[in-house]
Design a protein around this nucleic acid. Structure first.
Lengths: 246, 246
DNA sequence: ATTTTAAGTGTACAGAATACACTTAATTCT
DNA sequence: AGAATTAAGTGTATTCTGTACACTTAAAAT
């Protein structure tokens, strides 16, 4: 097998979620194509972070590479959730124009395996490497390329399912966070609100949420206690996280 | 795009689950390759139900087609759960021999999208169409082709996750079933046992499990009440199925 | 010193999970 | 015909979890 050739048929797309304590956001890449003569924008919208897969590369590696190439970030939480292979998924007119403009054959069938990814927006600095990036609120409509709208909505569904039974929300928070931040995160993901006392009563059962000897600073109100998530404690007391029984 | 050509790069595999009131089983296809000279078996094991995808075919369609071609069954519950794209997934020696014997190039990278599928073993008659099929208990080891062992174990995990919050277990039971059969099904899927009274107390809250005016017949003990699952009732009372709250 | 802001805290009630053992109704056996 | 076998069917007490609900506190800003 020839090495390091981008396979024309396989791609990966990453739905990168971030949380800024206000909204759950998705990382989008700006896509523009201007008419060579008039200079008018023929295509102006957004795509997910995505690219083709190398011939000798696993899908998980490809997803991590795509993220690295776009943002410079490594060791990011990545979870495969669905593969989109509708033969018509690249046949909207503006997508055909776009593919031709970057030298790809729009006739060529591309099956894409989609991942979602969780990023600590507040701990982390993203370096734009070429493409213009925007963080966009998940629930706000925006014009998207290809079938990326449906990909995002399935990603959110997959995230909701996963986070019910796995402590992955902490991937979206700084390593030290307050309980109100944690609550707000869950509220944003599920699109609901919770009662503060009841929320705290519930999570106070979780030993792996450890209170630190440290408070919030510089806020114009009573400073909150800081917490961190202990993976160690979690691994040793796994049953406690939303355990299932029929 | 040329029509009805099997794409060399894409395949689908189906992990078909069935339940015989005793064990959760998987449908496997026998695979044998005999040495032309000695007649000795070079390869003798099992594969999942799978095949390549047509050029103009969606992945979901391909999975349904593969199932139909193998068993004659239609309108079967199918759920995509993972895509396997490790470049080395077809490089075990016996798999190379096998691929060559059926005229495929083992150098060719194949990414497979895996589905699991639920079948009412007791309502349904499978017609073998060519290939020899066996129903094998999920938890019993057996020699499997390619990466099909790991595919089955991820399928089971995906089924467990899905069935926690969705009433899909009924796809594995005949349309009329007893509560003991339902309990046994959950016990097999999760590899645990439940207390009979507590199990019944829990499911008695589910309005969509409707008791029929009919009893089991021909059993050498007190005959059980028969039940069915009402999709109608379920749709109208959805919240009741294992609802989540943080 | 006062205002503003979000943090932090307790109780009563209802519903769900869990532990646990005997009676009943059909077939089969003698 | 009677006895044995088999799985179905049923209730209660206790603990745990979910839910509804309002005031006090500590910091910064005015």
């Amino acid at each position: 097998m020839q090495q390091h050739i981008l396979s024309p048929n396989f791609s990966v797309d990453c739905v990168v979620f971030g949380f800024d304590f206000e909204n759950l956001k998705v990382l989008l890449v700006e896509r523009t194509l201007d008419d060579k003569e008039t200079g008018k924008a023929l295509v102006k919208d957004h795509t997910l972070a995505g690219n083709h897969v190398f011939n000798d590369e696993d899908l998980d590696e490809a997803a991590a590479r795509v993220l690295y190439d776009l943002t410079g970030l490594e060791n990011i939480y990545l979870e495969q959730f669905h593969t989109f292979g509708n033969p018509d998924r690249l046949t909207k007119e503006k997508d055909i124009m776009w593919l031709e403009s970057i030298g790809l054959n729009p006739e060529n069938r591309v099956v894409t395996t989609a991942y979602y990814s969780l990023i600590r927006l507040n701990d982390v600095k993203i370096e734009e490497k070429g493409r213009r990036l925007v963080w966009h609120p998940v629930d706000k409509p925006i014009d998207l390329a290809f079938d990326h709208k449906i990909i995002i909505s399935l990603a959110l569904e997959a995230l909701r399912t996963k986070i019910r039974t796995n402590p992955i929300g902490f991937e979206l928070l700084p390593t030290k966070f307050t309980l109100s931040q944690l609550q707000k995160l869950y509220e944003e993901i599920f699109g609901v609100t919770y009662d503060k006392r009841n929320f705290r009563k519930k999570i106070s059962r979780m030993d792996y949420l450890v209170p630190l000897n440290e408070k919030q600073k510089g806020v114009a109100h009573k400073p909150a206690q800081l917490f961190m998530f202990s993976k160690d404690v979690y691994e040793k007391t796994k049953k406690d996280f939303f355990d299932f029984t029929v």
